[in-house]
Design a binder for these strands. Structure first.
Length: 502
RNA sequence: GCCCCCAUCGUCUAGAGGCCUAGGACAUUCGGUUUUCAUCCGAACAACAGGGAUUCGAAUUCCCUUGGGGGUACCA
């Protein structure tokens, strides 16, 4: 596709360090990466840290760690063509820090004032409140009435010299329609009359507003394609007005659908807590690749790879135009499915690394089992793990004893006790080989024949007695690893507990 | 209120006028395998929001309605 006036595809992610790394931010970043990869372009990272009230260094660190964990890296912007020397605010780490660019932003404000495209507005907050009240009383739409457009240059200079506080507003001119061809949505049009009057571009503190800073920074970083959340659609109209006032080439815009929860609300930290935060997934033991794949899959399916694909594979046939327009509802079950799938494909060294990190048992240096036994244990539960956080609930009975609770004991029942008795005598008769799974299994089978029991009635009592669980690897497998003594001990103690209960 | 965006199974999606009695995946349910559990295999369930218009023909184009969401700051 003929991209646009820009020589090269450059995209960016521009998070604010005002909270944890949000799933939505990651998703936006991912689509930007995908698009840049697909078009052999570059992807940049800009930190929008100008909100001094809410920005915190701790959040910056969390965001960077999150990106690192997810293995999303960015390119370093080169010296911009349009800007004079170096790109102000660019750090060694390739990150552009917006807070370091305030002087740059201000200089463009001055330029607009000099060109008559922006003006100072000395109206006080009280004055503007009164204006809105009056509009409300008249049942008009509340918006800035552009009153200061009329201020003469002399009057303006006078108020300025008197030290009166002011904001700078962009002169939107006569009402007109701003239209862009959205990469995802097609043509989008917004009339400037619905923008709430001439927008403030610089506060009375001298700091510029978000919409202005974004335009300046994207321009100097030569961003060619801006892919961001749908919640920015109305910002885009204002930003295009700023691009036009500044006579900057206008990049292409694409507005991605948002992530919703089941209640159809935008996924937010405030309302939905931890599930919005990337850190939660890292902590619970999700694989970064699975999370990436899930996030990408929410609004995009690879024609070539279907559901399961890496970011590189996804980029092969990525079409920004085929990204879904409607919101994606957050679905933990789908994420878990991805994660199970990725976990099950891990080789042993990989899974051991993860599992060790999440287990309270020292798997790599264990006194009960040697390394090949550990491998057998880990591999036996590899496919039943949704996330690594669950590791110990699957393997704890190998490492420590337990007390059966009522809900577990109930599965043993009367017949079960008999099964256990028989199993104990069989073991003690010495006819089972604890080095051989099949020997154990055959032994259990013979009990089944003797008592005329099969299926759950035969296997559950033993399973519960030796593992306190109704699911897990083969019984023979467990028995061989735990060994004769431990098995007998647990069988006896289960019998004891059932008798206490009855 | 005003402006904008969106609308296919419960969920994510395929579908760019006839290939659609709408395909796949997740979830769910039921079978088979495993004398248990997990895995695996098979099957079932289940959707074009409603109404008009265009057309020989519409999930696909247009309009309206309804529903949902976003925005509406000297926040980002």
């Amino acid at each position: 596709m003929p991209l646009n006036a820009f020589p090269k595809v450059r995209t960016r992610i521009a998070p604010s360090p005002t909270g944890n790394l949000h799933l939505g931010t990651v998703r936006t970043a991912l689509y930007n990466v995908l698009f840049a990869k697909k078009h052999q372009g570059e992807f940049f990272f800009r930190l929008e840290d100008t909100d001094r009230q809410r920005s915190e260094e701790q959040f910056t660190q969390e965001i960077l760690e999150g990106f690192k964990w997810l293995n999303i890296s960015w390119d370093t912007p080169e010296v911009p063509l349009h800007a004079p020397e170096t790109l102000v605010g660019l750090g060694e780490d390739g990150i552009v820090r917006q807070s370091l660019r305030e002087a740059v932003h201000s200089s463009y404000i001055e330029r607009l004032i000099n060109e008559g495209k922006a003006y100072r507005c000395f109206a006080t907050v009280e004055e503007l409140d009164a204006m809105r009240e009056a509009q409300k009383a008249r049942k008009e739409i509340e918006k800035y009435d552009n009153r200061s457009r009329a201020l003469s240059k002399d009057d303006s200079e006078k108020l300025l010299s008197e030290g009166k506080p002011y904001v700078v507003r962009l002169n939107l001119g006569a009402d007109h329609v701003i239209t862009w061809l959205d990469l995802i949505r097609g043509e989008v049009s917004i009339n400037t009359k619905d923008l709430g009057g001439d927008p403030v571009i610089q506060k009375s503190t001298g700091q510029v507003l978000y919409n202005f800073a974004v335009v300046i920074d994207d321009y100097e970083m030569q961003i060619s394609h801006i892919l961001r959340g749908e919640d920015h659609i109305s910002n885009t109209a204002k930003q295009i007005a700023i691009y036009e006032a500044l006579n900057f080439p206008i990049p292409a815009f694409g507005h991605l659908p948002l992530i919703f929860t089941k209640d159809k609300q935008k996924l937010s930290k405030r309302k939905h807590g931890d599930i919005a935060s990337v850190n939660t997934y890292k902590t619970q033991g999700y694989l970064a690749k699975a999370l990436v794949n899930y996030l990408l899959g929410t609004s995009y399916n690879s024609a070539k790879y279907g559901e399961i694909f890496t970011i590189t594979e996804g980029a092969e046939d990525f079409q920004i135009t085929s990204v879904s327009k409607s919101p994606a509802i957050y679905d933990i079950q789908k994420l878990n499915w991805y994660n199970r799938d990725y976990i099950s494909k891990l080789n042993y060294q990989e899974i051991l690394t993860y599992v060790s990190r999440f287990s309270k048992f020292d798997l790599e240096n264990n006194s009960l089992f040697n390394s090949s036994q550990i491998q057998l244990i880990v591999e036996s539960i590899q496919e039943s793990l949704d996330k690594f956080e669950q590791i110990d609930e699957h393997i704890n009975y190998f490492f420590e004893d337990f007390k059966l609770d009522d809900s577990t004991l109930i599965t043993i029942a009367e017949e079960g006790k008999e099964v256990i008795h028989e199993f104990i005598s069989l073991i003690e008769s010495g006819s089972l080989d604890f080095a051989d799974q099949n020997s154990i299994k055959n032994g259990i089978n013979s009990i089944g024949e003797k008592l005329n029991l099969k299926g759950k009635k035969l296997f559950f009592p033993i399973r519960v007695a030796i593992s306190a669980k109704t699911s897990g690897p083969e019984l023979g497998f467990i028995a061989v690893l735990l060994g004769k003594e431990k098995i007998v001990e647990r069988l006896n103690s289960a019998l004891l507990e059932t008798s206490h209960r009855n």
